[in-house]
Nucleic acid binder design. Structure first.
Lengths: 367, 367
DNA sequence: TTGAAAGCGCTAACAC
DNA sequence: GTGTTAGCGCTTTCAA
């Protein structure tokens, strides 16, 4: 026989107390405050509990009474399983899980698929607070979270949710440093691969207007940093082709790079706003026999393990720390009343995929 | 000001009903059974709710009443973050998350570190059922799970928990096929790298006695399958060196392989019970300049993406399906009363890391 | 040390 | 279409 499903409890604290001829308080204390009763009474309670098959205080009832669920809810806007496939999200999750573990809290992953307007999972979540990871502005699930009277911290996006803690990284500064680095190497004809800028599916070139209106501030910041880095050598950003991809995968990175290079064979560098896209670009370069970095420079963002292993030149962001910080912000808030915003540093990682453009390309580009 | 933490609710269903001059039922219905009241009354309720800052029915109270938490608890015996680093565990998690998502259930990751005897997180979890992933026999956290009157499914290990569903894979059959394959290729002098066999930390050779007593049936089965495969060509298993490693990482795989080959330079093949260990063995072979498979055959188990990419000869197990199946077993149990046991097939994947032993080695081994 | 009383906030019969 | 009643199982003052 399977263990019963959806049973009412075989015994309750009350029935146990009745059986023992003591009050409910006493039984409760046997579990929650061992020092409040004699050792022998306590063991008697516990033994009778075992005999009657009483599984201990019901966690839901206890939560209702204590107003604590001992769990934090995590909201992701993608399919749940995305979190386990995207390496940057994974690092975040790892850090967050660690923080929860340290605090003895569970971590509740809430299903909340992007196009499903049903926010009931947010309403149903029995948690003490929420962490919201990288969702677009005006996301209905986020709004549902904000309606609940629980502490919340946002990671990455959106920025500036009033009254809510945030942890992010210096996206702009990282890209600025990378831009300068590439400019210094001599690149002037660059193309960009970026992640989705809107909720509506779109794959193609994103003009400056679209960039400015992006619903994902992180992408906006990264593009902005890059623009500023190159502005210092007088590059006209409006002429830089920025190829956007809705799905975030190596395959899409490769296809985006293919289209970009087909349309702009003169490019000497492909700058990607994520490592995953960059790995795709690398794959494409290999397929086409374009030596990297001799013929083509490729860069990423994130510093995920796969990319570092591949020697990618990229900007490292401390994803695990970001996750841990999100957890700590939520869990150790004390009586703090002002919202906090933490911005973690990023760091340029010089790998083997960026180098000066070839002489011929330099001439071509008029240097 | 931060959004309030640990507040009592600003308004409750009862206070809202009072304000509106209707009964609590009506307000409840406005949220849960829209068809039970007139449209205008419903909108009036919802509007007043907004005005009063009523965030909708409290999920904990609702759970207590309905006896449903709409979440499943996941028990892992390692640190939580381990799950995010081990590729096989990750695949399982992905599948499980998908199943939960489809059913509109949350997935609660419960902290339960191996050496921490504190099972209170299990007692505290507000869930409708548990999935237990690959824990050793007689694990205290598992026992705590079994005490709770909730449906439970075990993935992989332990086997034969009475009255509990299980999903696993054909570990033995997979290894049997691999053993035969290697025997056929001509290998007779093999060494083995396996994962931990006991809860107590141990790194070194595991003799047959230790193998038989292993607390991890999955390892036992894999070793047993290999033994049977080679028994068909008359290999004496008791002479096969089996190197055990407590930690499961590429580094440990490399160090284990190093020790194994130092002690047994005559080996023509290193069979690993996981891909992660095998990747370590490959790394070591490369470091030592041993050509694979010409000089050394290396095999794994799992079929994780990294390994497949590396061309590893291995046994693929459908990890995502296993996860999905675990979720479905738990969620779609209907009125079923007999426990179910599902064993998913495994499949030999012939990569580029297994080949016949060199001629000289064959002579040496007396073929 | 122990017990009595008072809810925590909600849902689901069932009656009107 | 709406209200009354009766808990779900527990914790926690407070008093004995």
């Amino acid at each position: 026989m399977t263990r019963s499903s959806r049973i009412r409890r075989p015994a309750t604290l009350a029935s146990l107390a009745a059986e023992l001829g003591v009050s409910r308080t006493t039984v409760s204390n046997a579990y929650n405050r061992p020092d409040q009763l004699s050792v022998q009474l306590r063991t008697r309670v516990l033994e009778t509990a075992r005999r009657l098959g009483y599984p201990g205080p019901d966690p839901v009832a206890r939560s209702l009474r204590t107003r604590q669920a001992r769990a934090v809810g995590l909201l992701l806007t993608e399919e749940l399983s995305f979190a386990f496939r995207d390496p940057a999200a994974l690092g975040f999750l790892e850090g967050l899980a660690q923080a929860c573990e340290n605090a003895g809290q569970g971590l509740l992953l809430m299903p909340a698929s992007r196009d499903d307007p049903d926010v009931s999972t947010v309403h149903q979540a029995s948690v003490d607070g929420f962490v919201v990871y990288s969702v677009p502005e005006r996301d209905p699930h986020l709004e549902a979270v904000l309606e609940r009277p629980l502490p919340t911290v946002v990671a990455d996006q959106p920025m500036n949710v009033p009254g809510v803690d945030r942890v992010g990284v210096d996206d702009r500064g990282g890209m600025l440093a990378l831009g300068r680095h590439l400019a210094e190497l001599g690149h002037r004809r660059i193309g960009v691969l970026c992640m989705r800028l809107s909720n509506a599916r779109f794959d193609g070139y994103a003009d400056v207007h679209r960039q400015r209106r992006a619903a994902f501030p992180v992408q906006r910041e990264r593009l902005g940093g890059l623009r500023d880095g190159f502005a210092e050598v007088g590059l006209d950003w409006s002429r830089v082709p920025v190829m956007e991809r809705f799905e975030h995968s190596v395959e899409e990175g490769a296809s985006a790079a293919a289209q970009l290079l087909d349309d702009h064979p003169e490019l000497t560098a492909v700058v990607c706003t994520s490592d995953v896209l960059a790995l795709g670009a690398l794959r494409l370069a290999e397929q086409r026999g374009l030596p990297v970095p001799e013929r083509l420079t490729v860069t990423g963002f994130d510093g995920v393990p796969e990319a570092v292993r591949a020697g990618l030149t990229t900007v490292r962001q401390p994803v695990r720390e970001k996750g841990r910080m999100a957890g700590e912000l939520l869990l150790n808030r004390g009586e703090r009343t002002e919202p906090r915003s933490v911005v973690l540093p990023t760091q340029l990682v010089e790998g083997r995929t960026a180098g000066p453009p070839r002489e011929t390309d330099r001439w071509f580009s008029g240097l």
